[in-house]
């Protein structure tokens, strides 16, 4: 009865065939990107040096380094993080700990999906209309960072909410039964046990923020500014915009230069993602219950 009949054989062949087909598709999805990364490294690596990272662009941005852009990106990311973290964590707390199953919660979830789905250039328009003009921050780090903060808010909310929801309900109930208020429960049980998950989300958000270009183009990032920002009301250069500018707007840029900038940018983003992923895996293996 269990012999390899004609039909069984054919089934197995089809099975292998499909496995191969889908496997090939996966490889074809990943391979080009691997190739591209290889080219980026191949062409960009010779440009890289400590001097490249720590000196200013010179000769109309056709030579020199990327120091102001690097520092500017750090400014933008830091201010965006300071703005989005409290709001994002509060939103996640509401959704994970308080929100009843009603229309408002559904509306919030829909708004989060939309916030993540609105085109980045529309976020830029919003940043111009709201922060630059209406709140009169001008084109500044503050305006650009707030735009970035709102744009990347869904990343913080979603990952933080997931980390909080991973804390078993029984822990909360045990705490409530001892007479703890909701906030005491959150502070003593929920937050301590989700803080690492929240951190993972924050790293992910930072990596998103580093790479964004369109939202900062008109709100606070400058094409060329050879000095470092002194306050959040200054404009600044940024890595992502710098890559755009030297690869499209500036004539006679030596071929290696934009590759170097792209490589630094992608290294920043991917290394942060890798840290986030490694952190998550480490946590998965180190359960406290």
């Amino acid at each position: 009865m269990f012999e390899a009949t004609e039909i069984n054989m054919r089934h197995r062949r089809t099975e292998v065939l499909f496995r191969l087909l889908f496997g090939m598709m996966t490889i074809l999805l990943i391979l080009p990107v691997a190739l591209i990364l290889g080219i980026l490294i191949y062409k960009g690596a010779p440009v890289l040096s400590l001097d490249f990272l720590l000196s200013e662009p010179t000769n109309g941005m056709t030579a020199g380094g990327i120091f102001p852009a690097l520092v500017g990106t750090i400014w933008l990311v830091a201010v965006a993080l300071i703005a989005s973290l409290p709001v994002g964590v509060a939103a996640a707390l509401y959704l994970s700990e308080y929100a009843p199953n009603n229309w408002l919660t559904r509306a919030i979830n829909l708004a989060i999906i939309n916030l993540a789905g609105v085109p980045s250039i529309v976020h830029a328009l919003f940043g111009v209309g709201a922060f630059v003009l209406f709140f009169k921050f001008g084109t500044s780090i503050l305006a650009a960072s707030l735009t970035l903060a709102i744009m990347t808010l869904p990343v913080v909310i979603v990952s933080t909410r997931e980390a909080m929801q991973a804390v078993p309900q029984a822990f909360r109930e045990a705490c409530w039964n001892m007479g703890a208020t909701r906030w005491q429960t959150i502070r003593r049980v929920v937050l301590p046990n989700s803080i690492s998950g929240i951190l993972t989300g924050v790293i992910l958000e930072v990596s998103r923020t580093v790479g964004e270009t369109a939202p900062i183009m008109f709100t606070g990032a400058a094409f060329f500014l050879p000095f470092l920002p002194q306050s959040v009301f200054d404009q600044t250069m940024a890595m992502s915009l710098h890559l755009f500018v030297i690869s499209t707007q500036v004539p006679n840029v030596p071929e290696g230069l934009p590759y170097g900038v792209a490589l630094v940018l992608i290294a920043m983003v991917l290394s942060m993602n890798a840290i986030s992923i490694a952190f998550r895996m480490y946590l998965r293996n180190k359960k406290k219950w």
Binding site: A170, F171, E173, A174, C175, W176, N177, M178, G179, A180, T181, R188, V189, P192, N193, K288, W289
Partner: peptide, 19 residues
């Protein structure tokens, strides 16, 4: 919460808090 503090509860499944 003051009421709950006066009433102790033990669940069917033991819940040792992760601390």
């Amino acid at each position: 919460y003051a009421l709950r503090r006066r009433i102790g509860v033990v669940f069917p499944l033991p819940v040792g808090l992760p601390m």
